[in-house]
Amino acid sequence: MNGILKREALVKWAPLIVLLVLILLFTVLEPRFFSVRNLARIAISSTPALMVALGVTFIIIMGSIDLSMEGTVSVTAVVFAFAFLALGGTVLSWAWLALPLAILVGAVVGFINGLVHVKLRIPSFMASLAMGFVGTGFALLLTGGDRIRVEDEVFRGLLTERWLGFPVMVYVAALFLLIGWFIQAKTTLGRNFYAVGGGEELAHASGLNVNRVRILGFTLAGMFYAVGALMAVGRIGIAETATGNNFMFMSITSVVVGGTALWGGIGGVWNTLVGVLIVNVIGNGMVVIGLPGYVQDAVLGLLVIVAVVLSTDRKSISFVK
């Protein structure tokens, strides 16, 4: 009993300890790492990733996986940019409607994703991977390969306007983090995610409409991807087919490294916050201490494997595919 408790405690706190050790390590190697300027830089790069990772957190808690984020982010970014420019091109006009529209588009893509997975009974990793390809393809079709510039100063204020050294987008992200926490901890839907992840047959036997929870989960994830897309556009001022690039690897790594188990039922939004920060601290820290940026993908690859191995209770599963 004591052994199990220790293991659980270790798994629970390990990500936070890793994050603190990393921050300490980089600060010792290069004191400039811990300046407000650099921390703001980390926060900015973490913001879109955090939104996307929050979305997929709910899916992973259910024991499923969503690999559609790259396509969803690209589609919502492109649709948002087109609608924004068509409606006036500044938040102060009717163009603000493009913001909720983008989130609606994200919800629709996520909903279709969930339908394909649940109704056609296709494993979620493949259903969502295919949907991601469709999404990227659709974004390409809409743009024809062009970049769309969003130069409205009010919208770009997400990045340029700073409070206490940090841009507005960081505070907006914090708000959505709280919304994510609220859904996870204070709503029936959030508890149902854990019920499905903890044991689907049990959840089903106790009268839960598992399919409905799954579809709602994917819809919710799509909405968070859309918020991530808005942040990404706000950050660089451009929407294009490539807006979604790298989000898949980044967000899955973040969620897993944060301590949410791929098997479902364990973890949550705070784990994801820690995970996203670990990933971005490593990415930023390696550059700050002078390592080339491309080492990042290799380090993240190793990290995700270590994280999955550590979070797996090897006695409870016999084989994996």
């Binding site: 996986i65 898949m248 491309y294 993908d297 690859g301």
Partner: peptide, 21 residues
């Protein structure tokens, strides 16, 4: 290590990509 193949190959792909760069 009992890591599902879609994650393990994604991670190994990340290593390959870094090496290529």
């Amino acid at each position: 290590l009992l890591v599902p193949s879609f994650v393990s190959t994604l991670a190994v792909g990340g290593v390959a990509y870094s090496l290529a760069q």
